[in-house]
Write a protein that binds this DNA or RNA. Sequence first.
DNA 1: CTCTCCCT
Length: 836
Amino acid sequence: MPAASSPLPIAEVIPALRAALAAHPLVVVQAPPGAGKSTALPLDLLQEDWLAGQSVIMLQPRRVAARAVASRLAEGLGEAVGETVGYRVRFESRVSAQTRLEVVTEGILTRRLQRDPELAGVGLVILDEFHERSLNADLALALLREVQGALREDLRVLVMSATLDPDLPVRLGAPLVESAGRAYPVEVRYLPTDPVGRVEDAVARKVRQALAEDEGDILAFLPGVREIRGAAAQLTDSGALVLPLYGDLSVKEQRRALLPDPAGRRKVVLATSIAETSLTIDGVRVVVDGGQSRTQAFDPATGLTRMVTGRVTRDSATQRAGRAGRTAPGVAYRLWSERTQPLLPPARPPEVLEADLAPLVLELAAWGAPDPTALAWLDAPPAPRVDTARLLLRGLNALDDTGRVTPEGQRLLEFPTHPRLAHLLTGGAQAGLGPLAADLAALLEERDPLPPGSGADLTERVAALRDGRAGRGDRGDAAVLERVERLSRQWRGLLGVRPDNAEPDAYALGELIALAYPERLALAREVLPGGARGRFLLAGGQGVALPEGDALAGAPALAVAHLDARALNPQNAEGRIYLAAPLALSTLDARAGWAEAVRWDARTGTLLAQRERRVGALILETRPLKDLPAELRVAALAGAIRAEGLHLLTFSREAEALRARVQSLRHWHPEADWPDLSDAALLDTLEGWLGPVLGTARTRDDLGRLNLLPALEALLPWPLPQQLGDLAPTHLTVPTGNRIRLEYRADGSPPILAVKLQELFGLEQTPAVNGGRTPVLLHLLSPAGRPVQVTQDLRSFWNSSYFEVRKDLRGRYPKHPWPDDPWTHAPMKGTKRRGV
DNA sequence: CTCTCCCT
């Protein structure tokens, strides 16, 4: 059992770590929470000789954690933050000339590397919480390895991970230093069965039980703010101090959740996954894990993201449970059954495999790596995602066609935000809309300040922000608006504009949104066939809708900023619009261009050939296209046939026979050059063989009426037609002089000759095709055309089965002759005798 | 009743 006063476990491995870092540029430390790796180890390393007085940068994935870790480290030195130990996060830094250990969040390091790739004066970079595999931590590591290889062989990198993953040091080619943790035992308790119903209800129930049965403060994990509010409402009469904890809270509110209640009451903290790592909440001895977590899923097909609530991963659950054992032995209630536990996903995939890569691709292009996949990644960003990101960035004029950063791209990087919003800011400023762009970009980055049910119109949000700023009113969530204003101030500073508190122009907002989200311009379906009020089509092709009764529903066009790709109607994949501004049709029109469109309309079965004025999928105006170039028509019809199937074409009996004959010859003579007339091959080569006979066909009926025989015959150059006739004749002449059609099969089996038995009287041997090499398969028929026998050996039929068959036929067809010597008897066409 | 986390 660990005791709080004993030396930290990490102290035992410090000599090994020093040795490793002295010898290797990259070292991995794996130590469970409580080992002291974040709060003690960096101070020890500051004394290293190889550091030669240079400073240390320590990366933290979250701002709260960066501040907290810096405080703990400074405390360890008996100093204030900002002396030897400082921190730097967005909007806030506490560093001084004497600072030698700087705790920073991830984006700060990326930007610093851009400005100063050599990291002058820095001897060691520590990547803490690396097991989280955040996009920026992966990026930082890739960049740091690049720096080590090219510019700074002396730079050390220390990767710290709270989970034991033997793979990590192997994949990094780095020595591993492993430390024990120091934590009190935590007893994990599962439910007997998986719960049904809402997670907030189950969590509230379990918290009540824990308040009655267990000691110490309680930390409960819920997927999001909504559930936290729901659970809090059920616990108001519990007697405990119930505090929410999530990222959108102000620093002050977060601190309340972290510190003990001054009044000494028991504390219940209802938290999102923010409390999973980094934050130590004093006095927590009970964890209630609701078993869910909410994450953002990026859909590469639409380029849209949506929130998804999923089951907690096993490594997250371990982290959550560990929170109960930081200060004393504890208990962790897991609101799922022990049987379910092994079925949970082990860990979240690294963010780089799932995220929107536009910011990363732009960063790397500016870094001088237009091909991001070429860096030394632990997991390389997936190439299709990189392509999607490049496409977007080219649309924002941030990259050129070769993937290199443009001057506009460089400019976008001056704004610490997504390239889309940076483009909104620069483009807006150029259009003289700088102050509005600053307000809008800030609003789009933050949570919606207005309560649910306020409608989707962004104009209302800008008005609320400006009213607050001008002291005209206090609509909306004050804490959110305060954060929005801080962002807006940052943007105004970078743009060099002053705040504007006038009534916002709704249509100007639409134009600004179009700069950031060109594929989210939307046209009302009301103007389209079958459209309904409030439903829109995005330029990107996706259908979206406003909630019932939204005031924007009457707008002819919208610029949509925030939407959830599938929230409104998962059945037809219709998205839900959360934030938008009305768009003037003239704005849409100004962005539109004429293009020739030749495409198959599957609904009506016709070839559409028109000039269209369009923005992406939005068609504003059409004109018929005269003098349609033949190759466009052929390509469109070929595409239609490929999409709907070869059955759009009608192969006549002759055409099918020709195909079967040629396919048979391909089987019989694979060495010869018979063309492939199979379905697959014909579909592959439609343009070539069908093109010449398409004429003016433009409907499904036209296609069905085409005479395909000449087109197929054209595929047989001389001397193939003659050889085809010789080797695979269409008909055979039987002893009566009748020409009987042969039925060929594409699989090369012998062709079938269906013929009345009597017509073969006088014929001794099975007739053959393929130059006499392939006897036909005889389907011998009765005088009435009924099948009697199938044979490929006529001689043996005459000698044996014929006499069996004759008994039966004689009874049924007494007027017909049934001779004893069929092979010499004259053939018969009917009942009347012909010939001798 | 969308909103885990992050940015010179």
